[in-house]
Design a protein around this nucleic acid. Sequence first.
DNA 1: TAAATGCTCCAAACCGCTTTGGATGCCTGA
DNA 2: TCAGGCATCCAAAGCGGTTTGGAGCATTTA
Lengths: 358, 358
Amino acid sequence: MVPMIQTGLELMTLKELAEHLGLSPTTVSRALNGFPEVSEATRKKVQAAADTYGYRPNYRARSLATGRAMAIGHVIPMASEHEMMNPVFTDFIAGAGEVYAKNGYDMLISIVPDQHQEQAYQDFKSKGSVDGIIVHAPRAGDRRIHMLNEVGIPFVVHGRASDAHEPYNWVDMDNKRAFHRATDFLLDLGHRRIALINGLEDMDFAIRRRAGVKEALEGRGITPDESLFFSNEMTEFNGYETGRRLLAIQDPPTAFLVSSIIPAIGLRRAIREAGLDVGRDVSIIIHDDDLSYLSNASGGQEPQFTATKSSVRDAGRKAATMLLDIIESGDTAPRTALMEANLILGRSTGPAPNRTTT
Amino acid sequence: MVPMIQTGLELMTLKELAEHLGLSPTTVSRALNGFPEVSEATRKKVQAAADTYGYRPNYRARSLATGRAMAIGHVIPMASEHEMMNPVFTDFIAGAGEVYAKNGYDMLISIVPDQHQEQAYQDFKSKGSVDGIIVHAPRAGDRRIHMLNEVGIPFVVHGRASDAHEPYNWVDMDNKRAFHRATDFLLDLGHRRIALINGLEDMDFAIRRRAGVKEALEGRGITPDESLFFSNEMTEFNGYETGRRLLAIQDPPTAFLVSSIIPAIGLRRAIREAGLDVGRDVSIIIHDDDLSYLSNASGGQEPQFTATKSSVRDAGRKAATMLLDIIESGDTAPRTALMEANLILGRSTGPAPNRTTT
DNA sequence: TAAATGCTCCAAACCGCTTTGGATGCCTGA
DNA sequence: TCAGGCATCCAAAGCGGTTTGGAGCATTTA
């Protein structure tokens, strides 16, 4: 049962293993892959020999023969100027990777300049190196979904494309609802000047979050002040800088909705530098992707930030599971999964302060 | 010259392309791969046809024939309990990925539970899915280096293993020197109670950083107070928690050396909560991996933290370049690259405050 | 002029595995 | 006793490329 790992020895091929056993490659292959045409006795013998010699099938050969690559591709876009590496990829990929590993799939990652993205997907298909693809960070007017549908390779989108009019598989968090609820909560606390520090505005999630905020404001008869809505890459510095500028205006916001914990950390820095207190003078609600190394949890205490929370790692697991299921079942009926975010109370929110100007 | 991308069509094989051209597969293959046995005229014709039909060679088939996988493997350990995903991986991988893409290599990533790591490397080799491996996060007593040397697959270590007595390829930052210099700088400012918030203590980089600190202290005739040295996973919360506890002791440190910007953000939070001022009451020097989304730079201004800075993305590029070079040259003479960190002045350091107790 | 040389191109083997279509031997039932 | 059925196993043909060892032909060289 326990495999005897042999290091430093020449690798063994199926043919060699078959010779050792005095069997044909056919039989050995079938024995190892659990086909019924081989007797239980020989199967045991073959399995034992494979373990002893540390035989492992060559994936390239197998995949050439079966037509299955046993690998999933992820394309990670690289905006060349910023050299920006989105931190949520890390956790998403960690989640997906768990699922792949459990099912014997490899994970192929391509770092691709933005402008070569479509070509990269084409290549995945034509080079035959993957069985399916995860599409990250869909944007408004994203052509990838249409393209992949045409190419006919299984794929799952992490997020949605609002303007895609064809069916496709996706796993998404209910961004609009989450930010609607968060806004409602701030309104309930008496806040009226509410700023939004969002991700890049052509990102689908950013569009939905903004829509959620507007919807909530309008639901209370408040005209959204678009001058308080900001879109940018979600870096610590951008959060800091936006906060600094906003706190210096005439009638500064009393509350901030922030799309990620990272810019929120910058925002908090700006607030403190302005001599204000988070949670008392200024409220913050973040969206918390539950990143493992930037946890919003505070070891049993109340979280630092009030947050809409949804684990992006879990989204990775869900997307990977969905994709593998599509590939292995061959059933192409479009699947979707909408995850709900929890609104979790932390120390960064409080009632709107009384201003000299009410 | 411009390839006409054909979507939705059946993929074309080399054999089919050859038939279309009235040539043999041999000639087509050679034409496309630039062998001299084919005339310039036919090469042009073949190339043009390949472009028109959007032909791309199947990587699995090619790699089976050539014995080269055209892929590099990265194993990312996953400590199952913590579900920790080290953020520096992201940037390192981004750097390496650029180099792979430029050279036509794929990047294979395996998320592997800590205890199955060695098996994962074995598998990489025996499954034949990669030509080389990058080893991440070497630890004290790390068996991977010995194992990979035995297995005989090209690899480059990001970091070093202090106790490895055999040659191997590595790319590392001079951790000891960086922390020595940082400590010297704090000593010059008059600090004597210096704390270290380090990474997990069996990590090689953590060992070297600690050694650098001790060496500097001893160089000035100061006996290191080991009760001020902490090792833990580099999360925001751990930085916060360690800071909180240390600031509450009898004779708290006046300066902190922190192994990453992430726990430093937590530490800063703790310092502010204690009503103290970073840079005046308490000094901080971090090591800055130059993560793209957590930049220490402040848009033209002085950086937030004084830091020893070395781009981990750049390390990724260097390691990938080294590995590809080893693979393609076949030259196994061990290579090493030691990167120097810059000591960059920010707003988090100042002279040691005068205590009532001098 | 005959042999040697180059230049192009091709047939076929091969990479390591899967899978189709038997082949073999033994057992059953009529 | 013999056809038919079943359980095992195998030879050989792929999968889609690369590569070895020529073949065919025009051009030089002796």
